[in-house]
Amino acid sequence: MDNQPQHIVITQSAPPSNGLGTTAMILGIISLVFAFIPLIGFIAWITSPLALIFGLIGVTKAPRGGAIAGIVLGGIAFAICLLWATIFGAAMAAGSGAS
Rank of each mutant, 00 (worst) to 15 (best):
F34K: 04
G65V: 10
F78H: 04
P15I: 09
F42E: 07
G58E: 14
S31I: 05
I46M: 14
A77T: 10
L20E: 12
I43C: 11
D2R: 12
L52N: 07
P38T: 01
F54W: 14
I29R: 02
L52Q: 10
F54A: 15
T60E: 00
Q4G: 01
Q12A: 10
S13K: 06
V33H: 05
G28P: 03
G41S: 07
F34T: 13
N18D: 09
G58R: 02
A91Q: 08
C81D: 15
I80Q: 14
M25S: 11
F78V: 05
A67P: 08
V72I: 15
F42T: 10
T86F: 14
I40L: 15
I71S: 02
P49Q: 14
S96P: 03
G89P: 01
L73W: 13
A93G: 08
A62R: 09
L39P: 01
L83N: 10
Q6A: 14
I68A: 06
A51I: 09
Q12G: 02
T47G: 12
L56G: 15
G19M: 10
D2M: 05
F42R: 07
A79L: 15
I30K: 09
F78M: 13
A51H: 06
I40K: 06
G65D: 02
L20N: 14
L20Y: 11
G95K: 01
I37S: 02
M92A: 06
F36W: 09
T47M: 08
S99N: 03
A90P: 04
I68N: 03
I53N: 05
W84P: 04
S48V: 11
L83G: 04
L20M: 15
F36I: 05
V33A: 15
Q6F: 09
F54T: 15
A79S: 15
G74E: 10
A77Y: 11
I29G: 07
I8L: 13
I53P: 03
W84I: 04
G28M: 04
I71W: 04
F88E: 01
I57F: 12
A98M: 05
I68P: 05
A69G: 13
M92S: 07
G21I: 07
I80T: 15
F36A: 14
N18Q: 03
A98F: 01
F88N: 05
W45Y: 14
A44G: 08
T86C: 07
I43A: 13
T86R: 10
A79E: 00
S96D: 01
I29K: 00
G65A: 07
A44H: 03
G70S: 03
I87R: 01
P15A: 12
A24R: 00
W45I: 09
F42G: 14
I57V: 13
A91Y: 12
G75T: 10
S13A: 12
G65H: 08
I40Q: 11
I53L: 15
Q12E: 11
T86V: 10
S17T: 14
A94R: 04
G55L: 08
M92F: 05
S48G: 08
P16T: 08
